[in-house]
Simulated scan of single mutants.
Amino acid sequence: MPEQRGSDGRFVESVSDDDILFFFETGDRPFYGTAEVSENFDLSNEQAKRRLEALSDAGELEQIRMNDRQIAWWHERDVVVLRPETDGYSAHDTQVGVASAGDTRAEALRSLAEAIEVAEEDDLDGTALTELEDSDTDGCADGNPF
């Protein structure tokens, strides 16, 4: 995508900083290279590098130089990411791995809280059963712990 300049001579950004940060916050990996960001947002490598460096200078991204030509970029992840959408808000819990949506921020977060509770109940039910099965027979020939 060629860079375009606005009437003031500055480059017009087709991708917001929030879009780039959301990519890092919700991506499959905790870090990405410049080329991956470039490809994901259809930016030139130079555009992507300039944007990532600006986000790093602002304290939004961290970076480490892997060698003379490669830099790994990452964003410290929040557990919950709330993002405005065209029809409301989406909320993602990156720790539990659930997401929800709502017309308002509060609705999206309430819906996310309910989804987290369901996920944790499902997990606790399975964990509790496994722990019970393990404790029933530990060290007891007849399977009776008493």
Rank of each mutant, 00 (worst) to 15 (best):
89 Y>L: 01
87 D>H: 06
40 N>A: 14
55 L>E: 04
104 T>W: 01
18 D>F: 10
90 S>A: 13
5 R>H: 02
80 V>Q: 14
49 K>Y: 04
51 R>I: 06
88 G>T: 02
62 E>P: 05
34 T>W: 01
131 E>W: 05
131 E>A: 10
91 A>K: 01
55 L>D: 02
69 R>L: 05
129 L>D: 03
76 E>H: 07
79 V>Y: 13
141 A>D: 07
75 H>P: 03
131 E>T: 03
33 G>R: 12
23 F>I: 05
51 R>H: 08
52 L>Q: 15
60 E>V: 09
15 V>Y: 10
17 D>Y: 02
38 S>Q: 12
122 D>L: 13
93 D>R: 07
52 L>V: 13
20 I>T: 04
72 A>P: 10
91 A>Q: 03
102 G>E: 01
18 D>W: 00
137 T>D: 06
87 D>W: 04
71 I>A: 05
138 D>R: 02
58 A>H: 04
94 T>G: 11
57 D>S: 13
144 N>Y: 03
44 S>W: 04
23 F>M: 00
40 N>S: 14
79 V>E: 14
53 E>F: 15
61 L>Y: 03
53 E>R: 10
118 V>Q: 15
135 S>M: 07
112 L>Q: 12
29 R>C: 09
73 W>E: 05
36 E>P: 01
60 E>K: 04
25 E>K: 03
74 W>G: 02
27 G>Q: 06
82 L>A: 06
123 D>G: 05
25 E>M: 00
21 L>N: 00
86 T>L: 13
16 S>V: 05
70 Q>I: 11
80 V>Y: 08
96 V>W: 00
45 N>T: 15
16 S>R: 01
130 T>N: 06
32 Y>L: 08
91 A>C: 09
124 L>S: 09
117 E>S: 13
134 D>Q: 09
43 L>K: 10
17 D>C: 04
92 H>S: 09
22 F>P: 00
84 P>I: 12
29 R>A: 03
107 E>L: 06
39 E>H: 02
74 W>R: 13
75 H>K: 07
94 T>V: 10
49 K>G: 14
19 D>Q: 13
72 A>N: 12
104 T>S: 11
146 F>T: 09
112 L>E: 11
23 F>K: 01
2 P>W: 07
131 E>S: 13
50 R>L: 08
104 T>L: 02
53 E>C: 09
116 I>E: 11
42 D>S: 15
145 P>K: 00
138 D>T: 13
